[in-house]
Each structure stands twice: as C-alpha cells, then as structure tokens.
Design a protein around this nucleic acid. Structure first.
Lengths: 212, 212
DNA sequence: CCCGTACGTTCCGTTTACGGAACAGCAGTG
DNA sequence: CACTGCTGTTCCGTAAACGGAACGTACGGG
C-alpha cells in the first residue's frame, strides 16, 4: 500500500473516510507531489513551467498552504505522469468500520462463501478470485502469511469483511483492502447475496526496499 | 517542446488512466457526482447542506461550470461515502468510441464504458479496476506497452473483449485474459450492461529498462 | 385556490487560488 | 569579484470559486 513519504502521523485513509472533520490533508498531498518531483530530479521551477502553472502555485501546493484547484492538480500530476489518484492518497473505502452491529460470526458453520479461482500469476505474486457470499452468519478465514494483502471489490450486495476484530463494510461498488496476516471474516449484510472480486497479493521473494 | 530528462516512461498507470493534453474534464466529474447523488436518492440541496458546501457550489460542480477546489470535492465525496478517486476516475482510454449515439445530451453523459480504478500497486505491477460497459457499439483501447496482461472477470452481462482482431466472449462468471500489446476492444453483448473486474498486470519495471 | 415545502438554478458580495514579477540564496564562469 | 543561471519563496493584482440569499418551478395538503 502506498505509504506516504510524509510525516503523516496516521493513515490518510482514516482521515479520508472520516467526514466530520475536514481536510483532505493538503499537506500530505503536497508532500507526495514533492516526492514525485524530486524522484524525477526535476526542479520546482521546471515542473511549474512544464505543467503550465505558476511557481507560486506549485510552491504553495507542495507546502500545503493552498487548497489547489482540480485543474491545477491535474496539470501537475499529468506532467509527472501519474494519475491524479496517486497524490490523493489512494484511500480506502468510503464506508467505514463503525456502525454495523457486530454480527455473530458463526465459524465452522455451513460454508457460505464460494471462492472461484480465476487465475494465478506465474510469479505467484497475485491470485484473482471471484467470490460469492451467501446471506447468513458469514465465514472466518485464518491468517495468511505475513505481507499478504487482500483486495475486495464489491459488485452486488453489501459486504462486511476484513480483520476479525475490525471488519469493514462496503456497498456495491465499494472496495476493501487489508493485510491478511490476521484472521479475517466475510459476511453478507442484509438478505442479498454478495458478489465480489477478490485479489490476493503476495509479497515477492525479493521484495524489501523500494527500488529506484 | 523542451523535454525534461524523462520522456515519460514512468508510471505505466498513466497509459490507461488517460493521456492527451486535455483537461480533467470537470463535466464528466460533475456527471459522476450527480449520478452518485441520485443513486442515493439525495437532493442537491440536502447533499450540499450535509457536505457543508453551498448549493451554488454543488450545482455548479455537477454542471461542470466550475473548477472545484480539492477541499470542496472532498467534502462532497466524503459525504457520498466514496473515495475521491471514484469521481476522478477517468472514463476509459483515449480514442473514444466510434459512433456512440451521443444522445440529446441529457445530463449524465453517455459513456459506453466506465472504468473505476480501485487500487494501484505502489510497485506498479498491477492495477485493479472495476469496469462497467454499457450496451452499444463498444470501445477501442490502444495498445499498451509490451508485456502487459489484462484479466477480466465478468460479473453480469456478456462481455466481448480482447485483441481487436480476435475478441473473445465471456458470459457472467467467465474470465478472459490477453496480452494488451495490441489494440483491444470492449463491448457488451446484448442489451444488458456488463459489470466486470479488470486487472492489469505490468511487467516488473526492472524488466523494461531504467526508470529515469 | 393558496399556502408550505421542497426542488435546482442564478445573482452577488466575499474569499482565495491564480500566475507574473520580484526576492534571497547558492553554484559555476569569465 | 561581478555576472550569469539556477534554485525555491514571497508579494500582489486579477480572476474565479466560494456560501448565502433570492429566484422560478413543481408538488401536496388544508
């Protein structure tokens, strides 16, 4: 997952899914832009010129003292060659962990989720599944090896899934992501079956530091 | 044009997400916001109030006559419960559909395929999208760089997709895979919209030369 | 009928993000 | 030692995004 190079004390995901409070964390965005720029060895002036924005604008943006316009931010990310979402702190789901009465996840009960493997990468870096979760008590999955990330994209129904002690909820269209090194659960919320896509991502054997 | 040291070989992501010199297409963003809002049955006034923005702001945003501030856009998407990227997601790649019946420009543009990026790996080894393909003539996507593999898992409808000269067909539940180094197409078979999951798998960057 | 309430759009004064220019700091060169 | 060229920041007038209020419209009840 995209860890921000910024000193951001807490996951932006959390900040983003919170709505009461407030800011889209412009300072973190600025830091990300600056990191991207410096990673390419481009000067602020040069980037500003290439992107067609003022140096003042870019400077202010990188320092988080401005609340950039979408147009401005796009011009810069486009010039950097990254999608807009890359600097927005690709967030977790909008839907949150709270709410949702903690349903009694009966384990060992009738298997209510069907997993269909559709592809396994030759590198074994990821596996793609198509998942169906029937209404009912839900299902518990044991911990995987460290470093494994699960991505679920919900297509129909409402899915409650994630770490057993803090599951997340996503409606159709939502996306959930967690590291699966702890026991985790899947359950359909409501009476409708859930269909979803499940991507398991394994760490590469040679994976450690960021490469340059 | 004074090129910077890097001609733009970086993030492979951008290839698909969008290029061109165009703008971030505020009208499309507005349409997406409006669609999300109407899907929830919330009125413009109500959403504006809940999100703490002016009705004028939201109205202007939905109609694409304003260039929203990040803060504003965040307040709205947060209230809608979707990540920022959900409304920024650029609809399908470049060369647009052939004669898609533009329709009488009702609000909510007529797009034939909607691609929603749900996650991008920091390694840029894969990108996960949620895809919707509307019935109609379909859509052509240009070739990507060599070594890119596309996986599509169909959840609803019947999808015809693959290399432009030899597309494949998959019903709901099916899975398609091809290397996307040639132009390829997406089209819904029949009258029903197709929903699917799209996984783009990129070769590891060390397979294709220096990153700068 | 007429009022109340809701809708979305438009008007308008205020706030603020914008780019150009001017600024200070640093490195290499004649 | 200026001089040039670059870095990133700050100043400032202008353009535009902002929220609140007023507008026109549509529906339902008294």
């Amino acid at each position: 997952m995209p860890q921000s190079p910024s000193p951001g004390p807490q996951p932006i995901a959390a900040a983003l899914s919170r709505q009461g409070g407030a800011d889209p964390d412009t300072t973190a965005i600025g830091s990300r832009v600056r990191a991207l720029r410096e990673a390419r060895g481009i000067s602020l002036s040069a980037l500003a010129r290439q992107a067609g924005v003022g140096k003042a604008t870019l400077s202010g943006l990188e320092n988080g003292v401005r609340n950039p316009t979408l147009e401005t931010l796009y011009a810069i990310t486009a010039q950097l060659g990254v999608p807009l979402a890359a600097v927005l702190a690709e967030p977790a789901p909008g839907p949150t962990t709270d709410g949702m009465p903690a349903g009694p996840t009966v384990r060992g009960a009738a298997v209510s989720a069907t997993l269909l493997e559709v592809f396994e990468d030759t590198d074994a870096t990821y596996e793609l599944y198509r998942m169906r979760v029937a209404p009912g008590p839900g299902q518990l999955s044991p911990a995987h090896q460290a470093g494994v990330t699960e991505h679920v994209t919900v297509f129909a129904g409402v899915l409650r899934a994630g770490p057993a002690d803090a599951p997340l909820t996503a409606p159709a269209g939502g996306h959930l992501r967690w590291t699966s090194d702890v026991p985790h659960v899947y359950a359909a919320v409501g009476d409708d079956e859930v269909t979803a896509s499940l991507l398991l991502r394994y760490p590469r054997s040679d994976e450690q530091g960021p490469r340059r």
